[in-house]
Design a protein around this nucleic acid. Sequence first.
DNA 1: CTGAAAGCGCTTACAG
DNA 2: CTGAAAGCGCTTACAG
Lengths: 342, 342
Amino acid sequence: MGSGRTGREAPSIADVARLAGVSEQTVSRVSRGSDKVRPATRDQVLRAMKQLGYAPNRAARALRSGSFNVIGVLTQTIQRTGESHTASGVLDAASRLGYSVTLVQVAHPETDAVHEAVHQLSNQAIDGLIIVQSGRATHTHLGLPAGLPVASSDSALVGYYPSASADQIQGVRDAVGHLLALGHRTVHHVTGPHDSQSAMVRMAAWSRRLEEEGIAAPPPVSGGWEAGDGYRAGLELARDPEVSAVFCANDEVALGLIRAMHESGRRVPQDVSVVGFDGLPLAEYAFPPLTTVRQDFHRAGSAMVDLIVEQLEGGPRDGSRRIVIPTELVERGSTAPYALPR
Amino acid sequence: MGSGRTGREAPSIADVARLAGVSEQTVSRVSRGSDKVRPATRDQVLRAMKQLGYAPNRAARALRSGSFNVIGVLTQTIQRTGESHTASGVLDAASRLGYSVTLVQVAHPETDAVHEAVHQLSNQAIDGLIIVQSGRATHTHLGLPAGLPVASSDSALVGYYPSASADQIQGVRDAVGHLLALGHRTVHHVTGPHDSQSAMVRMAAWSRRLEEEGIAAPPPVSGGWEAGDGYRAGLELARDPEVSAVFCANDEVALGLIRAMHESGRRVPQDVSVVGFDGLPLAEYAFPPLTTVRQDFHRAGSAMVDLIVEQLEGGPRDGSRRIVIPTELVERGSTAPYALPR
DNA sequence: CTGAAAGCGCTTACAG
DNA sequence: CTGAAAGCGCTTACAG
């Protein structure tokens, strides 16, 4: 597989040592930026490095030291907003700390596929693993090597590994509470996919919040994560004149639902109020601008890097270590006070 | 930086050799899946590997063989649709071919930042580099090591390295042609950012297409890549009753512009037809559904992996090697025949 | 088809 | 503060 790079031979630590007139040992010390090296010696070495264009061979370093300075990231599809924004946070934080990031995408992470991907990743090639989304793969499917630092933002894995994720329950409570405060008698819900733990958490929080108010939750409408799912659900809900407020599993669904409402002649927000979840940048420019619960994916990503580093330094490795990131209700034009059906 | 992984010692090739009763050499052969090994011997080795949970140490392999089986990917922000979809294509193709992917994000890739990122990446840590977006960094800023296989999808780099990217010019021609065919007397344009080569290509193709028809291009409106840019441009264009058709630099801009039109009391598509570019999934569920030019980012990503492999096998390394990916005009509800201003 | 020897470029103890 | 020696786990010629 590939014949390697042709062209100039990379200078080695020996070349630098020779040019600087010191031992390889000393070059190594300077290269790691550590320890006590006499300033004059250090300058000499630095100059030699620069002149030769020296850069340490990462393979050799990893082989010897046992640490790669690489963090692995497991996603389901980087194409999805939440995952790409989270990955972006991982990337930024990792690079700030001098880690490289190896990204893996496993579209259908049921069993074997994830297992193999993780196995491949963890072959002494990463110092820690961040699981952004593990799909249907559970804790046991993953079969992670013992001793590998792990951090996760997938709801299904919270409790098994250190985690950093949005306070979804509070977010949902805010969304439903907002609609109730506007005078709506009840709030309908379009769910995410049934095999998503996160979708289930949102659904449960929605019905619980209604029950606290003494309202029996209406039957939820099955959706998904995509606009098309929201559109189909919207066509269905538009037929029921009693529907005045809908909380959607995410923004894409909300946007699809709004279009279905428009097409069905139900005005948003005059006839139907709609709230999304996630806080997509585009949602602000929807028509009408979407009221939603913003979650800070980027921050979750960088927090997971911190969790990995924490473990590398001897910190806790179990699921009790949780970073919960607050969500924010963003009130925009898609919600309005309840008005009697026309 | 990190004390390495604690816990079980990973089995080495020597452990497998001992258990299987063969030489390390033979284990290596089986592990690489290559060469001639007697089936019985292979089975024995495979069984020992499985029993021990052996996986080759990638650092050692890389150090010895000089090839990492890693492809580096340079992006500006993985949060953006085009970049994340392209990265997804890279990831899928790379994993199919047994390569890992190291992703780097350089938000402001003017000069030093990219240079350093690339330098860090290319320290014998990657077998090839894929440049999805290099921002304002030019060919010379990058300072890539000679001999490193490179592939790019950034318009600013096409011609310098082997490239895979959408046929933007044809896409723009189709978009403008579509509006003209609907009877519009002219087509206005909201541009992307001025420092984007790709935005400039789209603008040039738009004005050229109009000129072919003997129409003098109206002054373009400065935009960006985001919905907010389109919104501001839309507010401006809505004031001019002569504006009946707008081609936007991308879908986000088009969506923002449509909202501005709605708010200004100009109906889309009855009063103003709008066309976007890219083919975001969400655009299909906009109100009205957005007519756009779809480009296949995922395919560009996987094509770039092919270009890297091609170079690793001795293929061409210069900018004359180009893979041009066709675009597709998707006609939806945001465009309609020209009607005289009300 | 299989094996014994050398070495990839570093870092890790261990001296001084 | 600096250096000489050993070895991380593989693969690459070279034999047989």
